[in-house]
Design a protein around this nucleic acid. Sequence first.
DNA 1: TGTGAAATTTAGCCTGGACAAAAACCATGC
DNA 2: GCATGGTTTTTGTCCAGGCTAAATTTCACA
Lengths: 251, 251
Amino acid sequence: MRTPDDPRLSGAKRPPESASGDRSRAVEDYLKAICMLQSEGAPVSTSALAQQLDRSPASVTNMVKGLAERGLVEHEPYRGVKLSAAGEREALRIIRRHRVIEAYLIQRLGYAWDEVHAEAERLEHAASDELVERMAASLGHPEMDPHGSPIPTADGELAERRHPTLDTLTAGTRAIVREVSDADEGRLRYLAELGMYPGTGVEVLEHEPFEGPIRIRIDGEERVLGRSLAEVVRVEPQEDEPESGTEGEAT
Amino acid sequence: MRTPDDPRLSGAKRPPESASGDRSRAVEDYLKAICMLQSEGAPVSTSALAQQLDRSPASVTNMVKGLAERGLVEHEPYRGVKLSAAGEREALRIIRRHRVIEAYLIQRLGYAWDEVHAEAERLEHAASDELVERMAASLGHPEMDPHGSPIPTADGELAERRHPTLDTLTAGTRAIVREVSDADEGRLRYLAELGMYPGTGVEVLEHEPFEGPIRIRIDGEERVLGRSLAEVVRVEPQEDEPESGTEGEAT
DNA sequence: TGTGAAATTTAGCCTGGACAAAAACCATGC
DNA sequence: GCATGGTTTTTGTCCAGGCTAAATTTCACA
């Protein structure tokens, strides 16, 4: 009827699930999540991972066992899980993809700050390295994504810089916004309304007691920020100088 | 330890597998394949579908049963399968995605003709309608993809135009290349070397007998084309006029 | 040092989607 | 009218990756 490799019809010949060979989408999600949780090299607990990924702890244990067999993580039962060198390499590639894609969507396709996360969350598994590098090139190889998170380089270097969150600053401190979590659309939208982008200068005026909100000055205006919002914003405190208002762009 | 919806960590909260709600990637692939096989409304046989998708016939039967239950196809056992209205709508959306993505990759990210198929094959399942429409807008809402295939509109209209394949033309006919299958990288690369893009003029000089190759003139040069290559190229025959060589772009 | 709560792992189950082997069906040729 | 071969479907498995319930380990504190 038809030769086995008839090319007339452009069909899907067993397309791999994710762009990177044999790692399934689930595996990629686990690696990324572990990477982001183990900020300081400390092993990550099963339950923290379960929470992050919205899976049951039992599912996580199962999956982790599999990852350990494949040499992507090291798992000491009851003690937590750490990425192996191979796992970390993989995880950083995925994070790079995510952040490059977010930057591209915003800068080249007119997405808003708060719209890109979900899209990138899906595309990061489908985009090939080739595509990601082309996007990065089109943007001039940015080092930061639009939320201020550092983009790992193509060969897996990540510029770690841990800034404190806004809620930890003492009253009277001036600071510059450096990074905002990209995970929560609602909060992002609100922060955008306030003008709290990376690079914006803020001054903490007062902490309301008992985990209460924080009063800040931003761009000359006084605002009140709920604690859960302030936890999402990472800032670089400034040596005091009389200057106020918005500073130039971040590096 | 941490409040249930702590937003500090940008994690993947049960991201849907494909951008379009609940249809899995597999379902999308089946719908697209059925759509492309049932050119003339005729039902598609299980085995043709199995071949197209590179699955076993048994798997296809199973899946088709499921699709029928969900109202996406109509399946008469032993008789073949047809898309329902809902299934066709869905399939055309996926084909639109594929073709818009291919066009975007080539025009905005510098991909070559033969590199885009695999990439688009994955991205079409991950990209949201939103993204596809932004890409289409960035390209000025093209009606054709770079291989000459018509792009269904956002509301599901597909401009059907069936051109004959190059191998069916009689010797002496002049024609203009209109469409080239995007599925086979190797063939595409070779056709690109020959300069056989949509819009290129060709003249069939001679058919070698017994399913042999075809001699053509393209851009002034004589070439010999294997049958399987000629089957992949769709052309629009021209009323004869002394003109030769390359014509302007296709509409 | 013992003990109970919390965290983790084990065990058993389910679903989607794939496969091979066997059975059922259809279209013929004789 | 029926055998025969090719095409479908059925049947029984498998694997990945989820889940719940039950068992186990750890740890903090008495």
